[in-house]
Design a protein around this nucleic acid. Structure first.
Length: 300
RNA sequence: GGUGCCAUAGCUCAGUUGGUAGAGCAAUGGACUGAAAAUCCAUGUGUCCCUGGUUCGAUUCCAGGUGGCACCA
């Protein structure tokens, strides 16, 4: 029997976690989380990590597996997942991957080009240059280092410019020379399942979940990591807004309102990304039986 | 019951000395290859409460109605 990775995706708050546990039980398998923030062990409430009793029911991978101090990326995620899958497929025919981090999901399903890791010192230096000299400086630098990519890149997005420049400097040739855009072949089948609800209902669930997070102690969780607020891993919805509250820039009420709005925006962005992926088979979260039948029809 | 004030975008409101309208917030569409819950781009939203009158023309002025608020009974 061929090996199959079932990818359960959808916007935040749609109801992926509960369904993934049921599916994992049904197929007697384990779950890999594809969530760029649940990997951090210092974060739980604000990243909506499932409660311990849920995590105990089925073995989960890549939840609380790293520290907020660690440098993590889509590429590292790809490597981590492939290693875990290699292991799991020795025993299992089906593995479930669930989460909503779009780029991370694509890194596993389609692969990501072979590009060296960013050098923290160089990045810091480039960020400082950007802060001092502005985006036009980045544009000029990139145009000189990689005129091909310069024509393709969003010239208003400093992160894209900065990353291209740092890679050019590290490898000593244009960043675009490493960008193939080719999908990698995987030694297993992939089934993508997308979960969908009415937009209004989704937003309602998100708003209520934020209120629940606050009740569960999200303010305290954020306060604990507040001294580390400069870390990229903490540039995250549910934390950055509370940091502003701790700084007395906004009221607590305002912070909660912003967490709700920013989470809704995130969900919308996820929907935009997933919409163009024609490999996704869409279901309502309540259609568990149909989903199981669908998966079984694809296993052979 | 009487008097006064109000009625404009999903919400809070501004405005039109009469030529059918705009802010904030919310919302919507999109981009995306090692920072991605990040970063970046774009976009409106309308029986101006209803009916009649005056007027070339009314969301704007007038009258009546309806609803809301306040005060008086």
């Amino acid at each position: 029997m061929s090996k199959t990775l079932v990818v359960l995706l959808g916007p935040t708050g749609i109801g992926k976690s509960d369904l993934s546990i049921n599916l994992a039980k049904y197929f007697n398998t384990e779950i890999i989380s594809s969530d760029s923030r649940q990997v951090y062990r210092e974060l739980s409430i604000g990243t909506a990590v499932p409660p311990p009793e849920d995590l105990q029911q089925v073995k989960h991978h890549l939840i609380h597996s790293h520290s907020i101090y660690d440098y993590y990326s889509a590429s590292k995620f790809e490597q981590d997942v492939l290693k875990i899958l290699d292991d799991l497929f020795k025993e299992k025919n089906v593995v479930i991957m669930t989460g909503g981090s779009m780029l991370y999901i694509d890194a596993v399903c389609k692969g990501i080009d072979d590009i060296p890791d960013a050098d923290p010192k160089l990045r810091e230096q480039l960020i400082q240059e950007y802060n001092e000299k502005g985006i036009e400086h980045l544009r000029i630098t990139l145009k000189r280092l990689d005129p091909v990519f310069y024509e393709q890149v969003d010239l208003k997005n400093h992160k894209r410019l900065l990353h291209a420049i740092e890679i050019c400097l590290i490898i000593g040739k244009p960043y675009s020379s490493l960008r193939t855009g080719n999908a990698k072949k995987r030694p297993f089948n992939i089934i993508k399942l997308g979960l969908k609800r009415e937009r209004e209902e989704l937003y309602d669930r998100i708003n209520k979940r934020v209120d629940q997070m606050i009740e569960m102690g999200q303010i305290e969780e954020a306060r604990k990591v507040y001294p580390l607020r400069h870390l990229n891993s903490l540039n995250t919805v549910g934390y950055k807004e509370l940091f502003s509250y701790f700084d007395r820039e906004i009221s607590l009420e305002k912070a909660i309102e912003l967490i709700k709005r920013n989470t809704r925006h995130y969900a919308k962005k996820q929907l935009t990304w997933f919409r163009k992926d024609e490999e996704i088979n869409w279901f309502h979260p309540d259609e568990e039986n149909q989903i199981i039948h669908f998966i079984e029809s694809k296993l052979s």
